[in-house]
Amino acid sequence: MALHEVLLQQLFNGLLIGSFYGLVAIGYSMVYGIIKLLNFAHGDIYMIGAFSGLIFLTIAAPVIGAGWPSLILGLLISMTLVGLLGVVIQRVAYRPMLKAPRLSILITALAVSMILYNTVMIISAGRYRVFPAEVGTESFFIGTLRLTETRIILIVAAFSLMFILHMFITRTMYGKAMRAIALDRDTCQLMGIDVYKIIAITFFVGSALAAAAGIMAGVYYGTIHFFMGFLIGLKAFTAAVIGGIGIIPGAMLGGLLLGLLEAFGTQIPFIGTVWKDVFSFAFLILFLIFKPNGLLGRSESERM
């Protein structure tokens, strides 16, 4: 293949992976925006989403098959259930800590993360599990671009979810309340906004989107694993920071950029796949140091 063909192919791959990152990054960014918590458990929510999709498909396959219709049904059910899980976690673990020191709530989030992935590790016996979706794998070409039906559906679905979220944030009262709470929680309380309810909705939406990304990743990669949330959690956090943490369009943009960066990064001979993750982490660290407010973030006041 000629260079530009490789690049075109990687552009598509990058957008696809990047949209997963984006979906997970949104959850990080929303939660950080509203309660300033770096939710370490968010990557594990994504993993739980993938496993709940797997459980649904395993149950549903004998009845309605494991094709697109049952996948979509499974996606919606998992999104709801995992969204509720997010709300429960928020209620049990984070809400009592809202006024505690930052260090304490960070450690709490870490504990939640450990609980989630160790539970799944025990249940899944720590093995890779095949994701039992039966969807088209035959590829076809547009020009020289090799595509599959599945990939196209996945990318469309991911972008649709982002679009719906964008509408939700910008067009509804809930979205407005979310942004208001991010600015000043105490004042919102005085203004009669049910702050805790809005925080719960934020967790629901963020977790549901992560679950959707988890199922899509299951379809895309074919196997899932209890530790799959760790790496994507870190990368999605990177994506959220790139876009400017707390800014939702920023998270989407950051996810896509990071996906593209990685896709093209693997093409650089020196980096290759061996150093791919080192490359991502180094990028994260450098980004945090030199542009901690992200691409869309406004710089903080001139405080030194």
Partner: peptide, 15 residues
Amino acid sequence: RGDYLAIVTLGFGEI
């Protein structure tokens, strides 16, 4: 910020 440090150290550990 403190929570960024947590992520940076985590990333450094993995690197």
